[in-house]
Design a protein around this nucleic acid. Structure first.
Lengths: 108, 108
DNA sequence: TAGTCTAAGTTACATAAAGTAAGCGAAAAA
DNA sequence: TTTTTCGCTTACTTTATGTAACTTAGACTA
């Protein structure tokens, strides 16, 4: 039986997006450079441990950049690279899909 | 400290897409109705156990439909609903992001 | 000079999610 | 009666994530 061949670039992109928290982190950074604790507080249930892992992975992928400001206490900011900013149209698509198809009939 | 408020619909969409395997399964079904084993074989490393879970979740979300053909042995096909088909432009965006930004410098 | 404070993590431990492989039920074919 | 096929489940193992306490570094405070 044949396996459907997925384009490796596409597959890579899908893997980045499918990994828990990555999409949310990247989305969160669309609004500008942010510090560790800020991102952590922005995404409920995301633990510092996993955030730390994901930021390293995203940096390794060239999607975000880590900037160190040697103040006291040290300030570290994470921001999207061009590669990361290029996700913007994708988020727009997700948004418009959501607008059209996701309903919230009941309020909590 | 304020938390950035994510639109609940958008968040829901992001959660669907971020869950391991869901995006790949939905993408796989874009090519037409498929049976359990076919999907399983199309996605390397996806276990039947998780596929079973995901298909139920996606059906509950109204993204796919499960059709039973009482042949022998029974044939069951999964296919996208309109809601599921509406992911198409999103996959196009992922694809074009991947084309532009993902490189594969070395061949295996 | 010892003790304190803060940001940005890290570590050890506990829980949840996913992977593996064997098994099940139905119906028909051998 | 045994075998085969499909579409799953179940029991068990491994991996991923969550929690909470701890670490490091430099400047500030007592």
């Amino acid at each position: 039986m044949e396996q459907s061949q997925l384009c490796p670039r596409f597959e890579k992109a899908l893997e980045i997006l499918s990994k828990r928290w990555t999409a949310k982190i990247v989305y969160q950074l669309q609004s500008g450079p942010q510090r560790f604790v800020w991102i952590e507080n922005s995404l409920p249930n995301l633990s510092g441990k996993v955030l730390s892992e994901r930021l390293k992975e995203l940096e390794a992928e060239g999607i975000i950049q880590r900037d160190v400001y040697p103040e006291t206490p040290v300030r570290i900011e994470y921001k999207l690279t061009d590669k990361g900013k290029a996700f913007a149209p994708l988020f727009k698509e997700i948004s418009s899909w959501a607008e059209q198809w996701v309903d919230f009939p009941s309020a909590p």
